[in-house]
Design a protein around this nucleic acid. Structure first.
Lengths: 190, 190
DNA sequence: ACCTGAACACCGTTCAAGT
DNA sequence: ACCTGAACACCGTTCAAGT
């Protein structure tokens, strides 16, 4: 049976999930699919385009809008919910922040949850001229937090039984939540 | 005359500045220095360690502390000043955000201006338990803004005379300043 | 339409051997 | 102490040729 683009993307996602971006090479992918490298280039233009699809799949399971009722603070809590969902989807996948950042810069509208984030921010009361800025502010916080947490995990697994702990205090879900509140406190009408 | 580590780092910085991270290979560096690749490894443990030094040099010219008087808002404006200085140092150097992020994750205390940023935030009134979180929040904003702006510049220079402008509204110094104010509004006592 | 085989032009890192 | 020469084990991408 013929190879499909979905198989290529799916295998790329699972290599990323299990081994990280450093191991996600076109040649490794071809080996995993029992195929020659050149075959991949019939289904995919190049590695960058493949990574855009990988990012889309990582964010694909996130509910699109989530209308969260009315009343004061409803818009704000919808933003918190979506941002937290994005973070949760990325945290378990190594180097996912890097992949999403690359995809976002190459195809600014290809990732639905990220444009949905901008809409929710606008609905929550950030000025219309500021919604793209606010979107980037929140997104940089998400991706930065995820990258930092994964880096910490990577160092911990390398250090293992190293008695000298690597300096920094633990960042995590609580640091992320705090930063998100700070941003929304400053960006939304109080 | 013998090659020095300073020469290696300095040449790496100038290749980064002129051609970007994709062109900053150990082999390219060796060619630029009229030397065999292996020679570099006598002066530098590996490429990652070299990039940490590159990041340090990029941030090296930034004034360390800048005591900005007393009175209300003095601490806050010192934070704004330092964050803006860091942004200004990185914006003209392609891929500098990536390099600094890598260096920061490998050697959390090696980059003086970044720890100085944390101290200023603490002095400006962010809770002592929150200063590391606030440092990361501001740093993610700086690096994310710089990366976005450089990516925009890269696309613009590739597109050149492409009539279809690439979607996103312009981000820049004003978007950065807005985001910084938002963060400080939320993080500092009002 | 879909894939193989093979090439092109690269990488980072190591290390015996030279001076 | 400092560097060369050469190798090892990789990369992404292209493309004639096969089926």
């Amino acid at each position: 049976m013929a190879l499909t683009r979905e198989q290529v993307v799916g295998t790329a996602v699972s290599v990323l999930r299990d081994f990280g971006l450093a191991d996600l090479s076109m040649r490794r992918l071809a080996r995993e699919l029992d195929v020659q490298v050149g075959a991949l280039y019939w289904h995919v233009k190049n590695k960058q385009e493949l990574l855009v699809d990988v990012a889309a799949q990582l964010l694909g399971d996130i509910p699109a809008e989530e209308s969260s009722g009315q009343g004061p603070g409803a818009g704000r809590s919808a933003v918190v919910q979506l941002a937290t969902a994005i973070r949760s989807a990325l945290v378990p996948v190594p180097d996912s922040a890097e992949v999403v950042q690359l995809a976002q810069s190459m195809q600014p509208v290809a990732l639905a949850p990220l444009t949905s984030l901008r809409d929710l921010l606008e609905a929550a009361g950030v000025g219309p001229g500021r919604s793209a800025w606010a979107q980037h502010l929140v997104l940089n916080h998400i991706l930065g937090s995820v990258a930092a947490e994964q880096e910490r995990a990577r160092l911990a697994s390398v250090a293992a039984n190293d008695p000298a702990s690597p300096g920094g205090p633990p960042l995590g879900a609580d640091a992320f939540a705090w930063g998100l509140e700070v941003i929304l406190d400053g960006a939304l009408p109080r």
